[in-house]
């Protein structure tokens, strides 16, 4: 079977998908629906980068229950659209983060949680860490070490607001990338 651009038995999938997207989102104005649905269906991928994972888990625990916002930690990266960088990203983990981020289908969003994910926190001069905003575009930053679960919930609410007011999801689908998220993207390693 030929590997060229989906010439097999199913027609050119990529082209028809793009056409359908154009039709639905630009002409039928489904953008608002998509933004609404994406905002309330942010499924974080199960990638625990570091010890803020404790508070990440607590955010989904009964007392704070982030499933109320429609966010359900999900198993495989292919089926998610949301990533929470939980604390320090080491050089070894950075590669896994990058791979996982690329496995996720767009529209996708990321939150950096904890001081280590912002500017290194207490490990600011460590030789083995990477600032996550160097490798993936981050939407919301949560200070704290570790942040309280409410802060994580606040970040999710903030992201939902951003998606719905700025139309991030529909924009991403139309363009295939996001301009404002590229602000922090400096290439980085990984």
């Amino acid at each position: 079977m030929s590997q060229k651009e989906g010439k097999a038995y199913v027609g050119n999938l990529d082209v028809s998908a793009r056409k359908a997207q154009d039709l639905l989102l630009n002409k039928a104005k489904l953008g608002k629906l998509v933004d609404w649905a994406t905002a309330f269906s942010l499924w974080p991928v199960h990638l625990t980068t570091s010890c803020c994972g404790c508070e990440f888990a607590a955010t989904w625990s009964p007392r704070f229950d982030a499933e109320r916002y429609g966010a359900l930690p999900w198993i495989a990266s292919r089926q998610t659209n949301f990533m929470i960088i939980e604390g320090t990203v080491t050089k070894k983990m950075a590669k896994a983060v990058k791979v996982t981020w690329e496995q996720m289908p767009y529209p996708k969003f990321a939150i950096a949680m904890g001081a280590c994910a912002l500017d290194g926190g207490i490990f600011y001069n460590s030789y083995n860490i990477v600032r996550p905003w160097q490798i993936i575009p981050i939407d919301v930053f949560i200070p704290g070490c570790p942040p309280r679960p409410e802060a994580v919930a606040r970040a999710i609410i903030e992201l939902q607001k951003m998606i719905r007011t700025k139309g991030l999801a529909s924009q991403w689908i139309i363009k295939g990338y996001r301009e404002e998220a590229l602000k922090y993207y400096t290439g980085g390693e990984g």
Partner: peptide, 14 residues
């Protein structure tokens, strides 16, 4: 291992 190795022993020296 080592996905979360944050070099604590080295940083402690400084």
């Amino acid at each position: 291992l080592g996905y979360v190795h944050r070099t604590m022993e080295k940083l402690a020296e400084g």
